[in-house]
């Protein structure tokens, strides 16, 4: 749905590019998280995809249309929420959504229906007649999301959609975005890590204008460590269990994490390529021990993020 190839952008006469050789793809119905610290080039990339300005080098295509060659076709298909929601303070919410539907080229016959639907979905029903300038920050952000959705776009580009919201509103917005998966293709930028693991199917991490990693949140965690970590809880003699676990092929390391009333917790590390969970389970059971719990442990994205960005900086 979205193909970005070798995007590079220089601002003015600056010799340092804001982004350099950024390449990624987003499939239809996917939610892509665009993760990076402030100033990494997230907004720049998004502005190129939305046709706000052209890249210095490279191409971006949305639904097969090049943003440089067919900007109107691209703009018709994209809903965009910039970092600061573009709102006219002197308009009412309804008047504003109406205006956006008009300039985004939504068919007249569908306008009323869409405005109503979007208002309901974003929880704006009660404030339709209120002037935008009088709304609280949370409502303003919702109006921002509503304006990006009103023309029923195939692609949604959201720049920091939860910034400046209180925790309750953040949860609401995230649920709203999650609800869009499948029907729409979404790119979501953020510098807040939990947001990505909570809402996105895939992550592109960008730092200093370059893509430094791209994968699912789970795989990224694994790839970074080069190992797969599995948590095991079992009942029986600790030494015997540990011995059995070590004998499973591809297991690299077993750590005893403590015991309580004959229940022991182990952290097992295996190679990335093999999934040893089935083997672990059957070994424990056939050894005559009781298996209580067995689950993969991911490294928190926060750690990955720190690691990736600091490595890049060094």
């Amino acid at each position: 749905m979205i193909e970005v190839e070798g995007l590079t952008k220089y601002y003015g006469r600056s010799p340092v590019p804001a982004i350099e050789d950024v390449t990624f793809r987003v499939e239809k119905g996917e939610i892509l998280g665009f993760l990076g610290p402030n100033g990494a080039g997230k907004t720049t990339t998004m502005r190129i995809i939305t046709g706000y300005f052209p890249p210095s080098k490279g191409t971006a295509r949305v639904a097969g249309y090049d943003v440089m060659e067919d900007p109107m076709e691209v703009k018709r298909r994209v809903g965009y929420l910039p970092e600061h929601p573009p709102l006219y303070n002197d308009m009412t919410v309804e008047g504003f959504l109406d205006f956006v539907a008009d300039i985004r080229g939504l068919e007249r016959s569908r306008k009323k229906l869409r405005v109503g639907k979007v208002a309901e979905r974003c929880g704006l029903d009660d404030v339709m007649d209120v002037r935008i300038g009088k709304l609280s920050k949370g409502y303003r952000q919702r109006v921002g999301i509503a304006q990006a959705l009103v023309h029923d776009p195939e692609v949604l580009i959201l720049d920091e959609p939860t910034i400046g919201l209180d925790p309750k509103q953040v949860v609401e917005v995230r649920n709203l975005i999650k609800g869009l998966a499948g029907e729409r293709t979404v790119i979501l930028s953020t510098h807040i890590l939990p947001e990505v693991s909570m809402t996105c199917g895939r992550v592109v991490i960008i730092n200093k204008g370059r893509v430094v990693a791209e994968d699912t949140p789970e795989n990224l965690t694994a790839r970074l460590r080069g190992v797969r970590t599995i948590f095991v809880e079992a009942r029986g003699p600790a030494d015997a269990i540990e011995k059995v676990l070590r004998e499973v092929p591809d297991v690299k390391d077993v750590r005893n994490e403590g015991s309580e009333d004959g229940t022991h917790r182990f952290v097992v590390e295996s190679t990335l390529e093999k999934d040893v969970r089935a083997q672990l389970a059957s070994s424990i059971v056939s050894g005559g021990f009781q298996l209580l719990e067995l689950r993969p442990v991911g490294m928190s994205l926060e750690d990955i993020f720190l690691q990736l960005t600091t490595e890049e900086g060094a």
Binding site: G51, V78, Y80, H84, P86
Partner: peptide
């Protein structure tokens, strides 16, 4: 100033 210019330029008009 308001940033609504971005809305206009990213709209198909």
């Amino acid at each position: 100033k308001l940033g609504t210019f971005e809305l206009l330029t990213t709209s198909p008009i």
